[in-house]
């Protein structure tokens, strides 16, 4: 079962330097924060959509389409009713909700674009280049690698307990929650048994060997990175100008 969003495809976006990818992600996020007016967010969304197509990430959007819709409508409804108040619908809230909904979907799309083109090793590498200690980056990689292992274990445990008559979809919240005890305990104990072996296997591969560590993955920035960097800077600049000119902001609605 494919859990991760990473799309193994040889597209120019995949080949970008990890730091460039992280930079693009940050640029889009910053840009989306600069304006509130819903219409002004559309060009940004269009840029991201084009990159999505380039990165062959559209299947992921389809996979998470429910999420896009839910985020959109939920945000709209919540702000309409909870804008500076509790459970009182306001027009200002509606407008604000609309722009936030678009913004959140933009973030969602940006995140998917990033995850579709970036392996966790690259994330760890980029963060390392930006000053994160190696151990943190490695822990992230290791955890990421273990997720499918524990996920499969959890599925097995759920089935095994069903065979003993454990019915999950019945009863109130408390009763339902309590049924997770027979699921979580075996998964956790199994993980602990594995923890020991894993720590040993790490040392056997030279972790803590006492020798200085070398780094193999040394991504090199190329012309594409310059192009992507320019795109990032241009996007941010455009939106900062819009913001500075006061064009994109919504006034406070009392």
């Amino acid at each position: 079962m494919a859990l991760t969003l990473y799309v193994a495809a040889p597209t120019p976006l995949h080949r970008l330097h990890p730091v460039t990818k992280l930079g693009l992600l940050a640029a889009f996020v910053v840009a989306a924060f600069m304006v509130d007016r819903p219409l002004l967010l559309v060009p940004l969304a269009a840029v991201i959509a084009v990159l999505m197509v380039l990165a062959r990430a559209l299947p992921n959007v389809r996979r998470l389409r429910v999420m896009f819709l839910l985020v959109f409508f939920f945000t709209l409804v919540v702000w309409t009713f909870f804008y500076q108040s509790v459970l009182v619908p306001t027009y200002g809230g509606f407008l604000y909700g609309l722009s936030t909904a678009i913004r959140l979907d933009t973030f969602l799309a940006t995140g998917i674009l990033f995850l579709s083109t970036t392996r966790v090793e690259e994330v760890a590498y980029a963060l390392g280049r930006l000053g994160l200690p190696y151990t943190m980056g490695f822990t992230l990689t290791l955890a990421f690698r273990l997720v499918p292992v524990f996920f499969d274990a959890a599925l097995s445990v759920v089935q095994a307990q069903r065979c003993r008559g454990l019915e999950f979809g019945r009863g109130g919240v408390v009763a339902r929650l309590r049924r997770f005890v027979p699921v979580i305990v075996p998964v956790l104990i199994g993980a602990l048994r594995r923890a020991d072996r894993m720590a040993m296997a790490l040392e056997l591969r030279g972790f803590n060997s006492g020798r200085p560590r070398t780094t193999y993955l040394r991504a090199r920035a190329g012309a594409a990175d310059v192009l992507a960097g320019t795109l990032a800077v241009a996007t941010v600049a455009t939106y900062v100008v819009l913001w500075a000119a006061g064009i994109g902001t919504l006034a406070a609605h009392p």
Binding site: L3, V66, M67, T135, F138, T139, L140, L142, A143, F144, R145, L146, V147, P148, V149, F150, F151, A153, A154, I184, V187, L188, A191, L192, R194, A195, M198, A199, L202
Partner: peptide, 21 residues
């Protein structure tokens, strides 16, 4: 420590994911 941290993280994430729906 590294392994335990990774295991806590992976456990948390693995049990979170099914509930993303």
């Amino acid at each position: 420590m590294v392994v335990l941290t990774a295991i806590c993280a992976a456990l948390y994430a693995a049990i979170l994911i099914p509930f993303k729906v």
